[in-house]
């Protein structure tokens, strides 16, 4: 199966009458790690929410795994990692939060199967939080909470991971741990679309970067690297240098 995970074509989104995204087109191919870059207010988060159906779009097409968004129901194929989770019941445990990721394939009034429980433990282990599995989510550090949200997104073994600024409020060492985790997911064949303020620790992983400015895509291509003659050109020789990425680095 070679269906493109995300195709966005000529997308326009307005919120409260204010245009936020204008004529946005891009795609995320299988096995790609694509960064969405841009300053505050450039429309990155709105774009992510639009392609997940969380905000309506006025015109344009969004297709997820080849299916128009309006007809898309295979939600277990998408793992969504929001910037943060608002957990008001302060005793909610890591395991409970991660278990909620199983609901895309569970019917109401059914118990979680033994295999489902094992899968929850497996993804908690994968993000390195087995010892914290029964701790309260709100007592974890920012980086650990981010790992929990990633684990929750991974429960359904989705082929596409969408992350909205996973590094917000996370120190550099923890950013590196999260990047390591995303690398291992990418190695498993997962396509990743990640909203970033800075490429920094993610840079070695990125297949491509898309730069938004005032709701428009101003650049879409492969990042320039610091290497000297070691970087292999991607197939098709479509390497483009994104000078505009530098100010955010």
């Amino acid at each position: 199966m070679s269906v493109i995970p995300v195709v966005v074509d000529d997308l326009n989104v307005s919120l409260g009458g204010l245009p936020i995204l204008r004529d946005v087109s891009f795609a995320v191919e299988q096995h790609e790690v694509v960064a969405l870059l841009g300053g505050n207010g450039s429309g990155k988060t709105t774009l992510v929410k639009a392609l997940l159906g969380l905000v309506p779009h006025q015109s344009g097409e969004i297709a997820i795994f080849g299916t128009p968004l309006a007809q898309f129901h295979a939600w277990s194929q998408i793992g969504y990692v929001p910037q943060r989770a608002s957990v008001s019941l302060h005793t909610t445990t890591v395991r409970e939060l991660v278990t909620s990721g199983t609901l895309s394939t569970r019917r109401p009034f059914t118990r979680l199967s033994r295999a489902g429980k094992a899968r929850v433990s497996e993804v908690i282990e994968r993000v390195g939080l087995t010892k914290k599995a029964d701790d309260a989510f709100v007592h974890l550090s920012g980086g650990q909470q981010q790992r929990v949200l990633i684990a929750r997104a991974l429960v359904s073994a989705p082929p596409l991971l969408v992350m909205d600024e996973p590094f917000a409020g996370v120190d550099l060492a923890t950013q590196q741990r999260l990047a390591d985790l995303v690398r291992s997911l990418h190695d498993d064949g997962m396509a990743v679309l990640v909203v970033l303020h800075e490429t920094e620790v993610f840079e070695p992983l990125l297949s491509r970067a898309i730069v938004l400015r005032e709701g428009r895509v101003v650049k879409d291509g492969v990042l320039e690297t610091h290497d000297h003659g070691h970087e292999a050109e991607p197939p098709g020789g479509t390497v483009r240098i994104i000078e505009e990425v530098r100010p955010w680095r």
Partner: peptide
Amino acid sequence: ADEDFARV
């Protein structure tokens, strides 16, 4: 706990 995540 998380309306957006629940929608996804």
